[in-house]
Structures are given as structure tokens and as C-alpha cells.
Amino acid sequence: MAPSHFEAPTDVEAAIALLSRRPGARPLAGGTDLLVQLRLGAATPDLFVDLKRIPRLMATSLDSKGLTLGAAVPAAEIVENASIRSLWPGLVEATALIGSSQIQGRATWGGNLCNASPAADAVPAMIVCGAKIVLAGPGGEREVLIEDFTTGPGETLLERGELVVEFRVPAPAPRSADAYLRVTPRSEMDIAVVGVGVQLELDREGRVASARVALGAVAPTAVRADAAAEALVGSRLDDAALDRAAVAASTSASPIDDRRGTAAYRKSVVGVLTKRAARIAYERAQAR
């Protein structure tokens, strides 16, 4: 059943006030997950708080420190932004896999994150970029790392009355780059069976100076695979390092069997994708 109330505040304070007032209030950005849940009876909000008229949530700003992006900016704007694309190609690859072209006109990073699906494509990619979010609530604002925000399927750190305001993605270091890969039965409009994000920073000799690896759809939330990342550090991405990273990624995955894939398949493929995403990130970093 549709909620009985709909509000479209124009500033963050008003949104917080509305979200605090009713326990069943839900923020609405693109609605690409929420409206589906509503139809399936999986969500029963009594108030929609539309975020799209709040300028801060719709703003994009890029400077030498990095990107600040409103939580309600549609994916299509991100994907079509040439500067974002060249700085964080992996993050954009992941964003471009959300839904389809049409859905990307409405879908947002905020929604992809807050829906808290373990298979959300943008989330592993955000994690490896070191992205943070700003939460605003009745008690003020706080900054949280992406990997800390989701606590389980459908569960986040959001307190009552709190909402995700914006994303902050630090500018990539010199000689660093990211990549994201996933496996699905069809090329779009599908949910990742496995997703892997990798970010690598190289030293002047072409060795991996630092690495981040994050895995999607193989645990209750998107998770960092630090052991896999460490296996790459110091290497020039030789086969032995890649094999070690793949094994580490498989080991750190704790997938389940479901309709989309078995745990055995996911554990195997997460290693394959870790290697491949690392190779892509490495090539990109070399080219910088």
C-alpha cells in the first residue's frame, strides 16, 4: 500500500525534522529499490521524504582534494561526468552497472549504499577508493567510512532521523588507479553474483606501494579483503602475487548458496575477478 504522506523539503534540516517525526518515514531519492520493495510489500513506509529538492544532496563538486557528491545525484550524471570518469574509472564502471541506462537516470549512490544489499555494485568500488559519507541527523553531522556503514543485509549505521547527505571521495594519489568487475548471467539489469573492486598505488619502480581490495556479494555486506591487498603490495603483479591475492580473496569470502550462485562458485570466481581487476588497475596506474 502506498504511504499516506509525501514531503519534499528543500534543506537538510527540514528533512531531518520530517524523518525524526515518524518512525515509518523513509527518505526517497531515485526510488529504484524503494518503490520495488513497496510493491512487493517488503517496505511499508508511512511517509516519503523526497530528497531531490535539497540542493546539497544534488550537488557535485570536484577539486584537488577530491570529489564531494550529493547523495541524491543520479547515476547517469556520475557516469557522464568526464572528470569523474578519468579520475575513478573503476568507480564509474561500477556505477554504470547499476540497473540499466534508464534506471541510472534515477538511481543514486545514496540509494545503492543505503539499500544495504551485499551485491550493490558501487559499494566495493567506493570502498577501494577510500570514500566516506557524511551523515546528518538530529545530533549533527558525522563522517563514516563506507566499509563501516553497512552492518548486514539491509542494515546500516543510520539512526532515526539520520540521512546520508554526501559522498567524499579523496583524489587518487599519483600513479594510482581503480577497477571494478562483476559476474552476472546477463550484461545489464542484473544483480552481481560476485563483484570485486581493486585500487592500486604504484611506486616509481612500478611496484605496488599500496592496495585495496573489496568484495561484493560474497558476505553479508561488501567487505574489504586486506589479505588479498597485502599479497599484491611490493609486487609488480607477477603471477605468484596474483595467485596469492586470489587465494586470499577466496579465503576471506564467506558467501552463501542462493538462486544466483553457490558458495563454491562465488569463492572460486571472487579470486579470478580479484586477479583481473588488479591487472586492470595496475595498467591504469602505470598509464598515469
Binding site: 548471467p185 546477463r186 550484461s187 545489464e188 539489469m189 542484473d190 538462486r259
Partner: peptide
């Protein structure tokens, strides 16, 4: 039946 929406029942799209 476990395949009662396009979430679970895949049909090809142009991009496939």
C-alpha cells in the same frame, strides 16, 4: 516458483 519477477527471471536485453 522462485522466478516470479524480472529480478529472478532473466530475459536477454539488447546489450546481451
Amino acid at each position: 516458483p522462485l522466478t516470479v519477477s524480472f529480478l529472478e527471471y532473466a530475459t536477454p536485453t539488447a546489450s546481451d
